Amino acid sequence: MAEHRMVDVNGIRLHVAEQGAGPLVVLLHGFPESWHSWRHQFGPLADAGFRVVAPDQRGYGRSDRPDDVGAYTILHLVGDVVGLIHALGEEKAYVVGHDWGAPVAWHTALLRPDMVLAVAGLSVPPPFRGPEPPLTAMDRKFGGRFYWNYFDRPGVADAEFGRDVRTTLRKFFHFGSGAAHSSGEAGQPLVDLERGWLADMPDPEVLPAWFTEEDLDALTESFSQGFTGALNWYRNLDRNWELTAAWQDAPVTRPALYVYGDRDLVPAFPGTPELIANLPALMPSLWREPLELPGCGHWTQQERPDEVNAALVEFLKACP
């Protein structure tokens, strides 16, 4: 059973869940999630001999949520991971991330390879900086309808998602699941700018077996203070592009694992299928070919915990 506490990190307080003893594994959640998204990983990783720690990242759950939008850059997020490792009394850790947590994990390995024993990303592949700022690129391609651009509008998505938090989360988790999409589906997550993103999202009568009403209760509680902190991560996408200019074309050099579902919309984003296909050539540190999970949607470690756990344990044990 995971134990919970608050930790002072990088000038803020983070809530963390912790279980096990051994080499440190830091698990980083995505949007719209919390430490709870790793509930299926705690036991198996702890049983395999690891100390497992999953924070509510800044802006989420019981952790601090700074008011300044500029306090959510990739450098702040990597700084939180670095500070957390040190606050836990360690010098190095394995770092694993899903969704937004994956870019944080990848960038921690990119910027601080001295502290990362190995890195794994679920859903979002390793970062290779594009030729133009991402919000600018998606605005040009989709006329402002791509969800990143919608999230960038101050207060708009915050208000839409906050009107009925439980319904928002129920819709999101159905929309991103493998059950909601067909394999190879190439549709993009576009928003009706007048009606909002939730308007046309189906509201499922029954939740999938891997996401219970109790799970939804826990997640709803974690967003009781709203979505603004979490959305502020997206509002720094172009700023992150500017801040990481010095790492243009730099690959992650630490041992790396990438896992994704074939029904996840993220790996179908513009340019991403080509990136995934070229990863073995772009990243010599890749442990093996990207692991594709048939029938799996966006919520990788929740939808397919057994396969993800087996892959993580094998990978982490192979990277002492």
Rank of each mutant, 00 (worst) to 15 (best):
M1N: 08
M1P: 10
V7C: 00
V9C: 07
Q19N: 02
Q19R: 14
L27N: 03
L28E: 12
L28T: 06
H29A: 04
G30Y: 04
P32L: 13
W35M: 02
W35I: 10
W35Q: 08
H36C: 09
H36E: 13
W38V: 05
R39I: 04
L45A: 11
P55A: 05
P55Q: 07
D56S: 12
D56G: 07
R62E: 15
P66H: 08
D67P: 05
D67I: 07
V69E: 13
V69M: 04
Y72T: 02
G79L: 12
D80A: 02
V81T: 09
G83C: 06
L84I: 00
A87Y: 01
L88C: 02
E90M: 06
H98I: 00
D99T: 07
W100M: 12
W100I: 11
G101Y: 10
T108M: 00
L110D: 01
L111F: 04
D114V: 02
D114H: 11
L117A: 12
L117P: 08
A118I: 07
A120Q: 11
P127S: 06
F128D: 02
E132Y: 01
P133L: 04
M138F: 15
M138K: 06
R145M: 03
R153V: 15
V156P: 12
A157P: 14
D164M: 13
R170P: 04
K171F: 08
K171M: 01
F172A: 14
F173V: 05
G176I: 08
A180Y: 05
E185G: 14
P189E: 10
P189V: 02
L190F: 12
G196S: 10
L198F: 10
D200M: 02
M201Y: 14
P202R: 12
V206W: 11
V206R: 15
P208V: 03
P208Q: 09
A209M: 12
A209Q: 13
E213V: 07
E214L: 11
E214Y: 15
L216G: 12
D217P: 08
L219K: 10
S222M: 11
S222K: 11
Q225V: 14
T228D: 15
G229Q: 11
W233G: 05
Y234H: 12
R235T: 08
V252W: 01
V252D: 00
R254Y: 13
R254S: 14
P255E: 09
D262T: 03
T272L: 09
T272C: 07
L275G: 03
I276N: 06
A277V: 01
N278P: 04
S285E: 08
L286H: 09
L286M: 13
E289M: 14
E289G: 01
L293A: 00
L293I: 06
L293M: 09
P294H: 03
P294W: 06
G295Y: 05
C296K: 02
P305K: 07
A310Q: 15
A311P: 05
